[in-house]
Amino acid sequence: MYKYNKLWVYLFIVPTLIVFLTFYFVPILTVFTTGFTEWNGFNAPKFVGFDNYKMIFTDDNSITVSLMNLLKWSLIATFIHVPFGALVAFIIFKQPFGWRFVRGVFMIPNVIAVSAWAIIYRFIFNDQMGLLNNFIRKIGFSDFHTNWFFDSQYAFSAISLTWVFYAVIVTLLVLSDLMAIPKELHEAAKIDGATEAQIHWRINFPLIRGSLGTSVILSVIARITMFEAIFLTTKGGPGNSTYNISVMLYDGIINYEFGYANAVATIMIILGIGVLAITTKVFKMNKSVYN
């Protein structure tokens, strides 16, 4: 071996280890333990068992609304957002005229601040000046008036529309899986007389299930952590109809109900791990694609 002090190897890990301990390890332990305490940040935490969880599930309907919204948004993510992103990937994969341009442009909403995007959408859905309502009025429904974000009938859909079709991450993930499929597979299938549809169903879909699974995980977890798109548009309203678990956590923190907030955060972490476990199983992501 060549001479270097083995200490260096450990020294190089230290900064990252400190970041990990300060911002992940200790916080996660704090979240798990103080979820069982009553704690406002000023006094010492007082152990109260499952009281916070009881409170969350019985005090009001916030958690029920949040979980229902999460369920609906997760279904929208899985059955509209991910398939749309994959559809764009399949089209771009054929490299039609302008595909580079489309791929490049599709990324733009993803690189700008989510807060800016939420505020822009607040104006797009504005009744008087907004693009959407004016467009609807222009194509013939001249009496159409709706305040999307402030009407309980439409607020949920309006928030969904701020993200549902912006699926560029799905597109890029699926595209990189599609490009990894050996060309010989397609050629062999064609020689054997397979139709286009058969190639898609029998070859492409099974081979891209990894990226589809990753896409579902990423987009459902993004629904769990979705904050700006709600906080900067409806603030969870009207009433609490567009409330979600991230806004619930935020409200707990700024009201200095730390025990309660961390019980919510624990639920959040468990949901995240649940999504990961279920999706990995459904998409058989732990099994190798090529063998």
Binding site: F23, Y24, V26, P27, I28, T30, V31, T34, I221, I224, T225, F227, S246, L249, Y250, G252, I253, F258, A261, N262, A265, T266, M268, I269, L271, G272, I273, L276
Partner: peptide, 10 residues
């Protein structure tokens, strides 16, 4: 695997 805001209070 930790959802982004879960550690916000600590």
């Amino acid at each position: 695997l930790i959802p982004g805001h879960a550690t916000a209070q600590p």
